[in-house]
């Protein structure tokens, strides 16, 4: 789910960076010293999970997990995703340094939105509602992330409109897979460790 170095235009890179800086600042302000190890170790899980490939029909896709990041971390998804993306850029050259802002925003904004919309459902006592909350967060975050990527590409150059549309469209099967997976994952967490989804943030 990231755009690589050198593709986007300067105005898009700058806008993305500013939006990401804003989000990260809010996230850091909300983070108490007590939360730092928790957010950090959960970020390590997201990093490891992004190396897991699951079959989606004839191909396989790696997990993105923006939805569950949002549900667990809220605003703190911004710093968490920034750290994850920076590590991927340092270690594997995935994404890149100049695109950190845009990529962070494209993933953290859907995460935050899913937190606002579906965290109350995930905290519910009704197992079906919890699953549905997870499913919606998992799938809609991917679709929204894909749309934001398409939008960043299209705003950079008119020639990217078709490529962006194709990328956004190719995200739909992944969105369903992630949705189902997130649904079960959130159900599991709500049974085993409900305080992870707790209303404390």
């Amino acid at each position: 789910m990231h755009i690589s170095e050198g593709v986007l235009s300067a105005p898009v890179l700058i806008t993305g960076a500013l939006l990401a800086v804003g989000g990260v600042a809010v996230g850091l302000a909300k983070m108490r010293p007590k939360d730092v190890p928790e957010v950090a170790v959960l970020s390590s899980v997201f990093f490891v999970a992004s190396l897991i490939h699951i079959p989606v029909g004839p191909v396989s896709s790696h997990l993105v997990l923006i939805g569950i990041t949002g549900l667990l971390l809220g605003w703190m998804a911004f710093p968490s995703i920034l750290v994850g993306l920076t590590l991927q850029a340092i270690l594997f050259q995935y994404g890149g340094f100049t695109t950190l802002g845009v990529n962070t925003f494209n993933m953290a904004f859907p995460a935050l939105l899913c937190h606002m919309l579906f965290a109350p459902m995930a905290r519910s006592r009704l197992p079906r509602k919890v699953w549905l909350g997870g499913f919606l967060a998992g799938s809609l975050s991917i679709i929204l992330g894909g749309l934001l990527i398409a939008l960043s590409l299209a705003a950079s150059n008119e020639g990217f409109v078709e490529v962006g549309t194709l990328i956004a469209a190719s995200n739909f099967p992944i969105a369903i897979a992630e949705g189902v997976l997130t649904g079960f994952c959130v159900s599991f967490i709500s049974k085993v460790k409900p305080e992870l989804l707790g209303g404390k943030r």
């Binding site: 390590s44 999970a49 997990l63 997990l65 189902v180 079960f184 994952c185 967490i189 085993v192 992870l196």
Partner: peptide, 14 residues
């Protein structure tokens, strides 16, 4: 299975 695996990772890491 993968969802529960991940859930377990989240719980343990928390």
């Amino acid at each position: 299975t993968f969802a529960y695996l991940l859930g377990m990772l989240f719980v343990r890491s928390y």
